[in-house]
């Protein structure tokens, strides 16, 4: 997306989100808040997948790691600033894991499909570990009673306060990721995904750049995970597992890869659809998600937002 149109879309979206509490009741506000947290998660995946073209099939590992670390740290008795420490620890933990994975795979020359299946395996295992290491993770049931966000005396646990916290963080992170991906960082990444050998022959350390991008992406995912458990008050193995890992891919693919805003919209819309459909038949949802995957690949490789562009192109062709 070109610069001005991205900023305009961003501003309109932000305005809409800021005005929403005046006419939406508090139940729907919390539903939207949670959806936006997953939107942040989707944007984190998009920052990596959209820029490098390399698909991470286990991004929920970082979301879930942020979530579990946040839960464990903020539930530690007598800890100062539990929310802040939890957030920082979660982000750092996920960043370190991503750095290790990147070091071994990217520096080992692994790209593309191999990376995808290793990350897929990672999420299968992460979920198993979360289930079976029950002394720490609470096993299948997970952990409950996670304290809400508090920074010193600042209580962000109310419906409206937590909603605005999420909106503010989402907006800041989106702007930051966008600035990164349109500037020097993003151009070098584009160059690397275009022709890695050529980029290396110009002096760019592709493995390092990919690893750092992966770390940023994973840390952002962990931020979303940590926020989510603080708001929901509980953490369970499904936050780290394969199902969430694939759902986030759907959100990004539906919203449009490489646009950062699109995946947020995709996350909100798809989750809304999921609630509607699951309310009359819960087992229908996986079937529909499956069909959505296939349809996206064949009909809308650029995402749902691309429909607009396509229609415009059609009109232009019709006019010419």
């Amino acid at each position: 997306m070109r610069d001005p149109s991205w900023l305009i879309a961003f501003a309109i979206g932000l305005l809409l989100l800021a005005l929403l509490p005046t006419w939406v009741d508090s139940y729907n506000l919390t539903v939207l808040r949670d959806a936006l947290i997953f939107g942040l998660f989707a944007a984190s995946l998009d920052f990596f997948w959209g820029r490098t073209g390399i698909l991470c099939f286990g991004h929920s590992v970082f979301f879930g790691l942020g979530a579990y670390i946040m839960a464990l740290v903020s539930m530690t008795p007598d800890i100062p600033l539990p929310s802040l420490l939890g957030l920082l620890a979660g982000i750092t933990g996920a960043g370190l894991l991503a750095g290790a994975v990147g070091y071994f795979l990217f520096f080992g020359g692994v790209r593309g499909s191999y990376f995808t299946i290793v990350t897929l395996a990672l999420s299968v295992i992460a979920q198993q570990v979360a289930v079976s290491w029950s002394s720490v993770t609470g096993g299948d049931t997970g952990l409950i009673g996670i304290p809400p966000l508090m920074f010193g005396g600042l209580d962000l646990s109310g419906d409206v306060a937590s909603y605005f916290t999420v909106v503010a963080l989402l907006a800041t992170v989106l702007l930051g990721l966008w600035a990164l991906s349109r500037g020097r960082w993003g151009r070098i990444l584009t160059a690397i995904s275009d022709n890695e050998m050529r980029a290396a022959a110009l002096g760019h350390n592709a493995a390092l750049r990919l690893t750092m991008t992966f770390v940023i992406s994973a840390s952002t995912a962990a931020l979303a995970g940590a926020l989510y458990v603080a708001m929901a008050g509980l953490v369970a193995p499904d936050l780290i597992g394969l199902l969430l890992a694939t759902e986030v891919i759907v959100w990004v693919a539906v919203g449009g890869r490489g646009t950062l805003i699109g995946p947020v919209v995709g996350a909100v819309l798809v989750q809304r659809a999921q609630q509607e459909i699951s309310s009359f038949n819960p087992s229908l949802w996986p079937l529909i998600i499956g069909c959505v995957f296939v349809l996206i690949v064949f009909l809308l490789p650029e995402g749902v937002l691309s429909i607009g562009t396509r229609i415009r192109a059609l009109f232009r062709r019709g006019a010419a």
């Binding site: 020097r184 151009r187 160059a191 110009l202 760019h204």
Partner: peptide, 11 residues
Amino acid sequence: VENLQVARWGS
């Protein structure tokens, strides 16, 4: 121009 920039940033 971006091609040239990427080339410059490498050194």
